[in-house]
């Protein structure tokens, strides 16, 4: 499975954010998207998720159905600030979600099993989501997004607000599910990107570039990325 982006451009009135981007993402890999504030990472995700219209370009998914335009049905999108329907309990939200997506979910498991996947206890399940901590909401959002098995999983700063232990749980979870997904994760924490991701992509000067690690050690790889981001001509 492959996600192919060809000549993608997006502007907000006279401000060009993404310019003629051509890039491919493959199944089984976690991609780390790094860029300076305002570089266009969230815009890129919003373009893929059809939240905003693109100005030009093609976004296609190559899978068992052939090469077809990517639609929001193929995507799971985890936003940086977890937003969940606060009037439902965790269990009610999951029950509702499983009902709605019953045709899409293969090997449906028991509700308890799903909760144990993100380590939410039995007591937590019957609490209103409004009374969940940010970390718990984040886990819930992540769970909902991976259950229906979307082909492409977009994660916008997913681990920033989590405590260290939850972060580790989430990293393990992502590594487990990456085999069947294309995962793109945006982050400002370079260490996290290097530690978790199989490939790093820098978004700078409206362009995207994969940074090859080749024979570099972690320190040199990190410096290479920072130098790319520092490059003055890359900043508007």
């Amino acid at each position: 499975m492959k996600l192919n982006i060809n000549n993608l451009s997006k502007s907000y009135q006279e401000k060009e954010v993404l310019k003629d981007i051509t890039i491919s993402f493959e199944e089984g890999k976690i991609y780390g998207l790094v860029g300076r504030n305002g570089a266009g990472k969230t815009t890129f995700f919003n373009c893929l998720n059809e939240d905003i219209k693109i100005d030009f370009g093609m976004i296609n998914l190559e899978d068992e159905l052939g090469n077809h335009p990517l639609t929001y049905n193929d995507i799971g999108y985890v936003t940086s600030i977890p937003i969940v329907p606060e009037f439902l309990t965790g269990k009610e939200f999951l029950t509702f979600y499983l009902d709605i997506n019953k045709d899409k979910i293969k090997d449906r498991k028991e509700i308890e099993e799903y909760f144990s996947l993100v380590k939410l206890t039995k007591e937590d399940q019957d609490v209103l989501l409004k009374d969940y901590s940010t970390g718990m909401k984040n886990k819930m959002q992540m769970l909902i997004n991976i259950i229906s098995n979307p082909k492409v999983l977009l994660l916008d700063e997913p681990l920033t607000s989590l405590d260290i232990l939850v972060q580790e749980d989430m990293k393990k979870l992502l590594k487990t599910i990456k085999q069947d997904h294309i995962i793109i994760l945006s982050t400002h924490i370079l260490e996290l990107a290097i530690d978790l991701c199989d490939e790093i992509i820098v978004l700078n000067n409206k362009k995207m570039e994969k940074i090859e690690k080749s024979n570099l050690n972690t320190k040199k790889y990190k410096d290479k990325i920072i130098n790319m981001l520092k490059d003055d001509k890359n900043v508007e």
């Binding site: 998720n49 995507i75 969940v84 997506n101 997004n145």
Partner: peptide, 9 residues
């Protein structure tokens, strides 16, 4: 809807 509209389904 403020929350659920963030989910594609």
């Amino acid at each position: 809807d403020h929350a659920l509209l963030r989910y594609n389904f």
